[in-house]
Design a protein around this nucleic acid. Structure first.
Lengths: 352, 352
DNA sequence: CTGAAAGCGCTTACAG
DNA sequence: CTGAAAGCGCTTACAG
């Protein structure tokens, strides 16, 4: 229609040749001035910097990547992102990557089922590496890494393959911590609301919990979702042996448990039944939840993931790099507190 | 340490020359075969495709961007992302961009204050365009667009600059919808919990609300946060004229209002006081909240944002493109329902 | 210290 | 239809 109007002319950005011309030096000198490690005389450098500033020149990172074989782009693959814990992780990864000099190419996929649909895109942009965080993991990560020729670091969850790199919370320890706390508080009838089958998080948290308990807890799958946690809680409470202490494999299911107890059974978490979660997502501090939970610090996990990937990229580490990060229990009001309880890795929420 | 071990050799990916050699054609032919619009004979094409498949060849998108001046990368800038509504938006944008053939370079910044720190990074990677979604907006977007030479589309929030592109919910309409609904339910003492000063969302929602009310509502700032919404609700209820109907500029503040009413005043939203929010984020469907709220469809907003940017990039549109999307009210249990209420843009939650 | 030149992996006129 | 050649914006040995 308004083809006649003056179109928004995409302003062409200056190149190193433009700067060279203006500064009266060679294009190579400009390149050296901008790539730290090159020799440039003091006055040449001054002229170049002045010219670059006037022109608003900044080197084209894409062109550079072509020659030095490093795009400085990292693919971050994240599935099932609706839980706020993953948002915190994503935010932290992005910040850590930027600080380390990398950019984040985002692949937010509906579920990890769809992982295969993105490997072409990931590959086409020649990312230097991949960080993956997803609830379920159906793909052969090792093969994917091989096919793309770049290292992959898994976060929060590991795969049952010998050669993959990962950084996860020490979930077994987390489960034990919860069991010991509940035992000290005098609970007797334990239940575990698991996540989804096959997830290392769900399995290890449950194993640690069970290992520290005198008898086996009841177990119900909660699907790592609010609805799943709600239904699991209902089933447990209507069952033949309602538990007096429920450990949930993730906070979101614990919130659901608290809501189910209140709205379906008129029970209050912390007084009638103890509920403990995992992750310490933001909502756990909300007045309605005030959740006692295991802190798995998305910030340190994210930073380690980036450090590991960095080391792998700089050939300063050899895969597999596999780390389990220490966790601790944050005590709030959703679970009965043992009197005079003192233990390592347990921290009372101050204030309130 | 283990420098002696065989290092993980980064496998070099094949180039168009490798494919050409194997297929017995020129490199140019390979390029043409992969760039739709080029002429390649049927048998040449067959040989090329076979060779490419054997070698696992895919064109280097970064190299291509150099020559055709389109990186097909879009920067998505998102601040204050802790609210789940923004997560949904981010996910939708990413999906829509991928479908349109673009990749997402993520810039998740602590707050929009930090916007300036990322423009260099955004520029260095020669993104084709920018989509911005943030709670506050302190930067001169028009100038930023000018400086980088690429179009910017704002989402959910607009700026008071004549030339910016944006797509937002029709917030004035949303505010009116809420007022009419509350009036029909027989409420008399209205309150508005605003977000932050200067945000178009907060202003327009409040203006629409006020415009449809017979008298001015009380107003308290809630900072678009849980804590802020909680404090605002407390202040209102302890004030000289406790409201019987509270409209919150965003869901997260409405959840806080519901919790504050229950835990601080022993009141139930929907029975004692009506609470209505804005956005229909996932938590609003949780049993504890069951929030009546204005639906501002992050999915359609995201798709439109991508379409607009696309059109701008293809020179099929001239800035500014400014759109306000129709909203509707989703009726759940947190606000009294007028008897026999029927209105356009009001939808009862089915089921339960 | 500095410039000329080659090359990274592509696309695109331009001849044949 | 197809190949040779130039060029995108850089970096990096290599001579001077």
């Amino acid at each position: 229609m308004s083809k006649g109007k003056k179109e928004p002319e995409r302003t062409k950005r200056p190149t190193s040749y433009d700067v060279a011309r203006r500064a009266g030096v060679s294009q190579a000198a400009v390149s050296r001035a901008f790539s730290k490690r090159g020799y440039v005389g003091a006055e040449a450098r001054a002229k170049i910097e002045a010219a670059a500033k006037e022109l608003g020149f900044r080197p084209n990172a894409l062109a550079r990547s072509l020659i030095d074989k490093r795009s400085r782009i990292v693919a971050v693959v994240i599935a099932d992102m609706y839980y706020s814990f993953y948002v915190a992780i994503l935010h932290q990864i992005n910040g850590a990557l930027r600080q380390a000099g990398y950019q984040t190419l985002l692949f937010s996929i509906p579920s990890s089922q769809d992982l295969d649909t993105i490997v072409d895109d990931v590959g086409d942009y020649r990312v230097d590496g991949i960080i993956m965080v997803s609830a379920r993991l159906t793909t052969d990560v090792a093969r994917m890494s091989e096919a793309l020729g770049v290292p992959i670091v898994l976060m929060n969850r590991y795969a049952d393959q010998p050669s993959v790199n990962f950084v996860v919370p020490d979930d077994h320890q987390g489960g034990r911590l919860v069991a010991e706390f509940m035992l000290a508080a005098g609970h007797h009838r334990f239940a575990y609301i698991a996540g989804i089958e096959g997830a290392s998080t769900s399995r290890d948290r449950g194993d640690g919990f069970r290992a520290a308990l005198p008898s086996s807890p009841q177990v119900k799958a909660g699907d790592f979702s609010y609805e799943g946690g709600f239904a699991a809680t209902e089933a447990l409470m209507r069952g033949p042996a309602p538990p007096d202490a429920i450990f949930c494999a993730s906070d979101i299911m614990a919130w659901a448990a608290i809501d189910a107890l209140r709205h379906e059974f008129g029970l209050r978490a912390g007084r009638d039944v103890s509920v403990i979660g995992y992750n310490d997502a933001a909502e756990s501090r909300w007045r309605n939840y005030d959740l006692t939970t295991v802190v798995s610090s998305p910030d340190s996990m994210s930073h380690r993931a980036v450090e590991i990937l960095s080391a792998l990229l700089d050939r300063e580490a050899t895969p597999p790099v596999q780390e389990r990060l220490r966790v601790h229990l944050k005590v709030r009001g959703s679970a009965r507190v043992p009197s005079d309880y003192e233990a390592e890795n347990v921290e009372m929420e101050t204030g309130r």
